[in-house]
Write a protein that binds this DNA or RNA. Structure first.
Length: 371
DNA sequence: AACGCGGGGCG
DNA sequence: CGCCCAGCGTT
C-alpha cells in the first residue's frame, strides 16, 4: 500500500521542521496534564525504580505489569537488595509475566550495577545502553524520566501516534522505518521537558490514539492529523507481517480394491475445501512409519486394521502460508473389515477424472494408476 | 533482517 | 483467531 510517500515526506518536513513541533509537543503535554493516569513509577526520579517499571512494562500492558512492579519494588527496595537475590527467587517473583529472560537479565544488571557502579543505578543513556536488557527504548526512557536527558523514546505507542499524525506508511518494524520514526521522534522532542514529553506521547498513544477504536472524535490533534484527514487511521501504522508459515504433516493412506481407490471428500473449512483426497491422518510433527504402525506392519487407525504394503518418500508441498509434508502409505485391508467414514467412498479410475484433486494427490494417484 | 520469547486483553 | 502490548538479544 502506498500513500504518496514523496508528498508525505514533504508534509513531514513542512509540519515537523517549520510549522508544527511546538504545537505538537505542547498539545500533547497539555492533553497529558489533563488525562494522565496516576502511575506509581511516575512519582520518582530514582533510576532504579524507573528501571524496574520499564523492564516490567516491555511488551506488557500497564494493568498486567502493575502488581509485579509493586511486588519487586517491595521485595527489592534498592538495586543492592536486588543484586543479593538468587535467580530462583527472581524468576519466582516473575512467574506468570512471560518473557522470563527479562528477569534473568535484570539480575545480571543489578549485580553489575552493584559491582561496577557501587550500587548507584546509572541515569546516563550512554551507561544504560550497555546494560543487559536495556535497549534504545529503555535507555531513553530511564535517562529522560530520571534525569531529563534529551533522548526521545520510540515504542509501540510513539510509532502509532507518529505514523498516524504524519501519515508515515513505512513499516514500523523495517530497518528504514525504525530509523525514520526515531528521527521524527528526535526532531519532535521537547528539549526543555524531554521526560514529560516522552511520558505524554506514550500516554497519548495508550489512552487516546489507541490501536483499535482510537478516540478521534475528541482528539486535540485531529485537525492536523494526516491519518484522520485522509481516512487512514485504520490502516496506520503499517507493520510487516511475520512470516507465519506453518508446517503440517499429512499422512495419506492409499487403500485400493482392485482398480478402485478409496477417496475422501474434504470439508469446507481447511485448505483444498470440498476437493477430494485420500483418507488422512494429520500429525503435529513428522512421524515415521514405525510410529504410525506401532505394531509392526499393522495399525488400527480409523478403527480399522490396516496393513502396510509400501511407504513412499515424503513430499514437500508449499502453499503461501503452509508447508505440507506429505507421506503416502499404501495399505491393505479386507473390505468387510473396513469401517467407512461418512466422507469416504470407492471410485473407479474413470470416475476419478471428473473429480477435483489437489496437485500432490493427483500426481501421486496418476503415478500409482499408471504403474 | 528475521526470529524467539509469554501471557493476556480486545474486536 | 489475529493483533497488540512502555522490546531485547541472538543469529
Amino acid at each position: 500500500m502506498t500513500f504518496f510517500p514523496f508528498c508525505q515526506k514533504m508534509l513531514y518536513k513542512a509540519k515537523g521542521l517549520l510549522l508544527w513541533p511546538m504545537d505538537f509537543s505542547q498539545t500533547i503535554i497539555q492533553w497529558y496534564n489533563g488525562n494522565k493516569r496516576d502511575l506509581p513509577w511516575r512519582n520518582t526520579t530514582d533510576p532504579y525504580v524507573i528501571w524496574l517499571s520499564e523492564i516490567i512494562l516491555q511488551q506488557t500492558r500497564v494493568d498486567q505489569g502493575m502488581p509485579y512492579f509493586y511486588r519487586f519494588a517491595e521485595k527489592y527496595p534498592t538495586v543492592s537488595h536486588f543484586a543479593a537475590a538468587s535467580e530462583d527467587e527472581v524468576l519466582s517473583l516473575w512467574q506468570g509475566l512471560g518473557y522470563y529472560s527479562r528477569g534473568r537479565n535484570m539480575l545480571k544488571t543489578a549485580r553489575l550495577v552493584q559491582q561496577q557502579y557501587k550500587g548507584v543505578f546509572p541515569h546516563k543513556y550512554s551507561d544504560l545502553i550497555s546494560l543487559k536488557g536495556i535497549g534504545e527504548y529503555t535507555a531513553a526512557a530511564i535517562s529522560s524520566f530520571a534525569a531529563n536527558e534529551a533522548q526521545a523514546v520510540v515504542d509501540g505507542n510513539v510509532n502509532r501516534v507518529l505514523a498516524r499524525y504524519f501519515g508515515i506508511d513505512e513499516p514500523i518494524n523495517s530497518n528504514k522505518g525504525k530509523k525514520q520514526f526515531q528521527q521524527i521522534a528526535n526532531d519532535l522532542l521537547d528539549r526543555q521537558y524531554p521526560g514529560m514529553h516522552n511520558q505524554a506521547i506514550m500516554e497519548f498513544g495508550a489512552l487516546q490514539c489507541k490501536p483499535k477504536n482510537p478516540a478521534c472524535n475528541i482528539c486535540p490533534l485531529r485537525e492536523t492529523c494526516f491519518a484522520y484527514s485522509n481516512n487512514l487511521v485504520k490502516s496506520l501504522p503499517v507493520k510487516l507481517k511475520k512470516n507465519s508459515i506453518k508446517n503440517r504433516y499429512f499422512n495419506y493412506f492409499l487403500i485400493a480394491d482392485g482398480e478402485n481407490v478409496l477417496l475422501n471428500k474434504r470439508g469446507d473449512t481447511d485448505i483444498w475445501a470440498n476437493m477430494y483426497d485420500l483418507p488422512l491422518i494429520e500429525t503435529p510433527t513428522q512421524v515415521t512409519p514405525a510410529q504410525l504402525f506401532p505394531s509392526g506392519q499393522t495399525t488400527t487407525l480409523f478403527q480399522t486394521a490396516l496393513a502396510l504394503l509400501k511407504a513412499y518418500p515424503v513430499k514437500k508441498h508449499i502453499l503461501t502460508h503452509q508447508h505440507i509434508y506429505i507421506s503416502f502409505y499404501q495399505v491393505s485391508v479386507s473390505r468387510d473389515e473396513l469401517k467407512l467414514q461418512p466422507t469416504w467412498f470407492f471410485t473407479t479410475p474413470d470416475d476419478l477424472k471428473a473429480l477435483a484433486l489437489p496437485k500432490p494427490i493427483l500426481m501421486f494417484l496418476a503415478a500409482f494408476i499408471g504403474q
